[in-house]
Design a binder for these strands. Structure first.
Lengths: 98, 98
DNA sequence: TTTACTACCTTGTATTGCAAAGTACCAAAT
DNA sequence: ATTTGGTACTTTGCAATACAAGGTAGTAAA
């Protein structure tokens, strides 16, 4: 039914600009979503394995290198589907409220 | 984060009127949510064990007796919390879209 | 008495989310 | 030089959720 709101959020974030895990965590936090590392990292790996994301390493001026994730064409397709699914879920809830 | 949209839907449905599992499935279907028995029955039992629901048996004119579920005061409290959580989730998604 | 329909329940499996602990790079302070 | 602190990525083990599939049982019509 609800195939992962978090997946949806990750694709949303990466559809605007590439990002690395820690920065994604900050964005989620800023949007008031509490997610922790142990949730996010496996999820990113799953989405990469599904071909929705790719990544590249980039040196950081401060600390270890960062793994920047980038959304793929397939990822954008999935995002479009999830947009629709999210919309429908909202409609369903509205229906039940009446 | 998203502590069960389905739980939320069940409470929504039962907040309007009591119902038995099969009728709940029909309501969900009418609202375009695909849920199956194997999902719903354990969920109702869980919610009952949490004190969110109670039930009573009622004879049916056609077929076996039905287990009518009724939302409890505690269930209504939880529903109010979930209403708020649902609202917030929507806000979070909106934030991420900007 | 078999078939059909309705309704409830259980088992096993895959997925998801999290807590917790671990690895490793870098730079500043000791 | 070595320790400390900060950043970042990863893994392991556990609990909860959703589903497919199969099972139990009451009622009534063929």
């Amino acid at each position: 039914m609800r195939k992962g709101v978090l997946e949806y959020c990750i694709l949303l974030i990466l559809s605007r600009k590439e990002a690395y895990a820690s920065s994604i965590l900050e964005e989620l936090k800023a949007a008031n979503m509490l997610v922790v590392e142990g949730t996010l990292y496996p999820l990113l790996i799953r989405q990469k394995n599904q071909g929705l994301l790719s990544y590249r390493w980039e040196e950081s001026t401060q600390g270890p290198p960062r793994k920047y994730y980038v959304i793929t064409a397939k990822g954008r397709e999935q995002l479009a589907e999830m947009d629709a699914a999210w919309q429908e879920l909202g409609n369903s809830i509205e229906t039940l409220k009446k």
